[in-house]
Amino acid sequence: MIACGKGHTEIVRMLLDIGADYNKCDNDGCSPVMWACSEGHTEIVRMLLDIGADYNKCDNDGWSSVQIACSKGQSEIERMLLDRGADYNKFNNDGWSPVKSACSEGHTEKVRMLLDKGADYNKCDNDDWSPVMNASEMGHSDIPSLINERSRKVTVISEDI
């Protein structure tokens, strides 16, 4: 875990070669892949995913690897996880989804990636706040515009059917 979080690629490779448990979590429920996602160590994330690390596993607070990548602005890692089938609508214990985390942090491109996959942008958290409300509160005006544009496209398509 520490080697993954610190970006020590060769040490991670060596530990994996001798049979280290790549799904073992710390006391907070964070896995090595979560640590690597959080710190933006793309090569280590790829290495862990290639050997079968559980990318949908959540920590004790319900945060998944893709939600961590979205909140930290790790575009390449987010794309890699989504391409492998990560659950983009998984909600943590507070009712936050990856799209809500990306909206709150102002990561417009990450929001776009999640919307392209079909992420639910209407689901509110446990305090009844939507992703758009979080983006608006933080002054990220491009995100409500993006979601509004997507909402109109969905409405037009459904009216055509």
Rank of each mutant, 00 (worst) to 15 (best):
M1C: 03
A3L: 07
C4Q: 07
K6H: 11
G7Y: 11
V12G: 14
L15K: 10
I18Y: 04
A20L: 11
A20N: 01
D21H: 06
Y22N: 07
N23D: 15
N23L: 06
K24W: 08
N27G: 10
N27F: 12
D28I: 06
C30S: 12
C30T: 00
C30Q: 10
V33I: 15
V33N: 08
V33L: 14
S38T: 13
G40Q: 05
H41G: 06
T42P: 01
T42F: 14
I44F: 10
V45H: 12
V45N: 13
I51D: 13
G52E: 15
A53E: 05
D54Y: 08
N56T: 14
C58D: 13
C58E: 05
D59M: 10
N60H: 04
D61N: 02
V66C: 03
I68S: 08
C70V: 07
K72R: 13
K72I: 06
G73S: 04
G73P: 02
Q74Y: 03
S75D: 10
L82Y: 09
L82N: 12
L82K: 11
L82G: 13
D83M: 02
G85I: 09
D87R: 04
Y88W: 01
N89D: 15
N92F: 07
G95R: 10
S97D: 07
K100A: 11
A102N: 03
C103Y: 04
S104C: 09
G106P: 00
H107C: 05
H107E: 06
T108Q: 04
T108L: 12
E109Q: 14
V111E: 11
M113I: 00
L114K: 00
K117N: 04
K117L: 07
G118K: 00
A119E: 05
A119L: 09
A119C: 05
N122Y: 12
C124N: 10
D125E: 09
N126M: 11
D127M: 14
W129D: 02
W129E: 01
S130F: 01
V132N: 01
V132F: 05
M133R: 07
M133F: 03
M133A: 14
A135Q: 11
A135K: 13
S136E: 12
S136Y: 07
G139A: 07
H140Q: 07
S141E: 12
S141M: 15
D142C: 04
P144T: 08
P144R: 02
S145L: 15
S145R: 15
L146M: 08
I147D: 03
I147K: 04
I147L: 03
N148P: 05
S151T: 15
R152V: 12
K153N: 00
V154I: 15
T155P: 01
V156S: 14
E159H: 13
E159R: 09
I161P: 00
